[in-house]
Amino acid sequence: MNIFRLTGDLSHLAAIIILLLKIWKTRSCAGISGKSQILFALVFTTRYLDLLTSFISLYNTSMKFIYIGCAYATVYMIYAKFKATYDGNHDTFRVEFLVVPIGGLAFLVNHDFSPLEILWTFSIYLESVAILPQLFMISKTGEAETITTHYLFFLGLYRALYLMNWIWRFYFEGFFDMIAIVAGVVQTILYCDFFYLYVTKVLKGKKLSLPA
């Protein structure tokens, strides 16, 4: 464990909690892409199946349960509890165009052709593009609630911190995982446009609105 990975995990946890509280407190999931949240639930489910097979640490196991629990709670609130506030008309990204090719890629490019490893690879690839429906929805509505931009900021920051963690681990531990690194770079690049808007607008107290 190193400082980048720890702050990365805490940033990820913060994002997940911010979103959960936003929906719970405002009793509304307006502006939130349910499709992205389903993809995140799928990412955690396919990645954390090793909960059944191996124990790494109490931290690792407890965080995995928290991530999975919050992801499904968020999906439940969007599609069941606060269904009336779900903006389906703007959440129209065709996720099958992501899931199917990525499923194929996970079979072709992986570290080991075993079920758990292919599912892990699928989850790494999927996570790198899982935010696209959410970013697409914001570009369609032309704006985002400020709390949603904070959620996106911490979510984007977490993988950027993981990139630094991988540099650290390569240098000090000789560890590198090319699949995770390439997917992590793609994932972080997808947030660059948002990061620019977040820093130049939201941090200056303005509302995040895109030139529609």
């Binding site: 990975r5 090793d50 191996s54 490893e117 963690n165 000789g174 995982d177 995770a180």
Partner: peptide, 10 residues
């Protein structure tokens, strides 16, 4: 530099 496939990260 060895590649490790035991995934110890979240």
């Amino acid at each position: 530099r060895q590649l490790i496939t035991s995934h110890d990260e979240l």
